[in-house]
């Protein structure tokens, strides 16, 4: 009974906060509410007994996404765009229908939710899927946790390509800045001593926790992506506290950090073809290979997410010439 009560309050709060995120006219407040919503969602995942998703949601969904949004909104370009949007919302035909866009989106979202509800109710009552098959074959995969064995062995190909998605996002940010490292990005002009102090405490702890999550992924919920996200959060904190973080890395080191995991999967895949198929590592060395691949995921995820943050803070687009001028074309 009490548990139901907690769930109902939680679900209700998520809906209310989501509603507030959408209706809040001030961009900054809306983003803060969005972060709060992320934390509540993460609690919801805990209640659904999915601690690994809860971790990812807290670290990426709430933390990093939130700070990315805030950081991007601080740029002049974003503020100009916001002003233009406000202007557009109060001129022309929209003047006569204030909030028409929101009403339409709200109606669309509600309709979508209703349809989704029908679809979910329609699903077969008995949970079907590959859970059993994964459990049967787990022994051959080299790890003792079904999620990890699916991610890093049975469907390692998907994981590899997902790592590629992350990598491409970072490459896209670099391409927009027309540069190969983040040295030209904005660093904090004035930071407070207390933040530096906190960063000094948090960084070693973050490394410890990331290491724990990485290691525990082989036999219980946890895993490399979550560990990477936590490390990334620490890197972001460092940057906010005035340290250079990833924006201090040279082109080669930044590139290596971003590429490490994708390249490692590629190499493992290649070696696998001598035994049989691409990405084959079924026996004996399976566990070692999985641990090594996960370690590369930790590093690359951390560097990539931190690079996205560093990249989001600098101006781009119209004044890209300025960035270009700072980056000699032949330097590497």
């Amino acid at each position: 009974m009490l548990e139901h009560g907690v769930d109902i309050v939680l679900a209700g709060s998520i809906a209310v906060v989501a509603w507030r995120v959408l209706l809040e006219p001030q961009l900054f407040r809306s983003m803060v509410l969005f972060i709060a919503m992320g934390l509540m969602l993460s609690l919801a995942w805990v209640r659904l007994a999915a601690p690994d998703i809860a971790l990812a949601e807290a670290a990426i969904g709430a933390g990093l996404t939130g700070i990315l949004l805030i950081r991007a909104a601080q740029t002049e370009a974003a503020q100009e765009a916001a002003a233009a949007a406000r202007e557009a919302a109060t001129s022309g035909w929209r003047r006569w229908f204030p909030g028409a866009g929101r009403i339409v989106s709200a109606a669309a979202a509600l309709a979508f939710a209703a349809v989704l509800l029908v679809a979910v109710i329609d699903l077969p009552g008995e949970p079907i899927g590959l859970t059993e098959a994964a459990a049967t074959e787990m022994e051959a995969s080299g790890v003792e946790h079904p999620v990890t064995s699916v991610l890093l062995n049975f469907r390692a190909y998907d994981t590899w390509l997902e790592v590629g998605v992350l990598l491409l996002a970072a490459m896209g940010v670099l391409a927009i800045h027309r540069t190969y490292n983040l040295r030209s990005t904005r660093s904090e002009e004035h930071t407070m001593l207390v933040l530096t102090w906190l960063a000094r405490i948090i960084l070693p702890l973050a490394v410890l926790i990331a290491g724990y999550l990485y290691w525990s992924g082989t036999h219980q919920p946890g895993g490399a992506f979550q560990a990477g996200a936590i490390l990334a959060a620490a890197l972001v904190l460092m940057q906010l506290a005035g340290f250079r973080g990833v924006s201090g890395l040279s082109t080669l080191w930044l590139g290596a950090g971003l590429m490490l995991s994708f390249a490692a999967f590629l190499a493992v895949g290649f070696i696998g073809t001598f035994e049989g198929e691409f990405l084959r590592y079924r026996h004996a060395t399976g566990e070692l290979i999985i641990l090594a691949l996960e370690l590369t995921i930790v590093v690359s995820t951390a560097v990539t997410l931190a690079a996205l943050f560093a990249g989001a803070g600098s101006q781009s687009g119209d004044d890209s010439d300025a960035v270009r001028a700072r980056t000699p074309p032949e330097s590497l």
Partner: peptide, 24 residues
């Protein structure tokens, strides 16, 4: 699901390549 991942890769690579042209 693999099709989804491939579509994602394709999209992000495509967007980055469009943005390469530079300019507003």
């Amino acid at each position: 699901f693999n099709l989804y991942v491939a579509l994602e890769l394709l999209t992000i690579a495509g967007v980055a390549l469009v943005a390469l042209a530079g300019g507003a």
